[in-house]
């Protein structure tokens, strides 16, 4: 998996690329640990580069979201498409998190 971080004001934008499955969740978990460790609590995850997500991946996202929430922060998603978008919608994750089409829209809130 590849993670690219950019900063916009106090918001951290993380571009996630690759496959998020049972094998790569450890990478995602390690990445999400750095967000709070670096003091970023407002995070937008750009999933436009994400090819695949499994139920284990959903759980990692959930864990990250819970930690951010515990730190009075927030986690929003944007750029979902194809299979990932379907999984989000089927699993109800689309209803649980703020979802946006693009990064700009997500920043606008």
């Amino acid at each position: 998996m590849d993670f690219t971080q950019t900063k916009n004001g106090d918001t951290l934008i993380v571009h996630v690329a690759g496959r998020l499955d049972a094998v790569t969740t450890t990478e995602f978990d390690a990445e999400s640990q750095t967000w709070i460790a670096d003091g970023n609590i407002k995070v937008i995850a750009d999933l436009s580069g994400l090819e695949y997500i499994s139920s284990a991946g959903l759980r990692s996202i959930l864990t990250a979201a819970k930690q951010l929430k515990g730190a009075q922060g927030s986690l929003a998603f944007c750029g979902l498409s194809g299979m990932v978008e379907e999984v989000f919608s089927v699993s109800g994750f689309a209803a649980m998190f703020p979802m946006f089409a693009t990064v700009d829209e997500a920043l606008a809130g």
């Binding site: 959903l58 919608s89 089927v90 699993s91 109800g92 994750f93 689309a94 209803a95 649980m96």
Partner: peptide, 24 residues
């Protein structure tokens, strides 16, 4: 949050039973 099942009507074309978008 489960992936949609398929409904196969007898003699008809199968189709997905659309999800409600309710979470896991």
């Amino acid at each position: 949050g489960h992936n949609p099942p398929i409904f196969m009507p007898c003699g008809g074309t199968p189709k997905w039973i659309p999800p409600f978008g309710e979470p896991v």
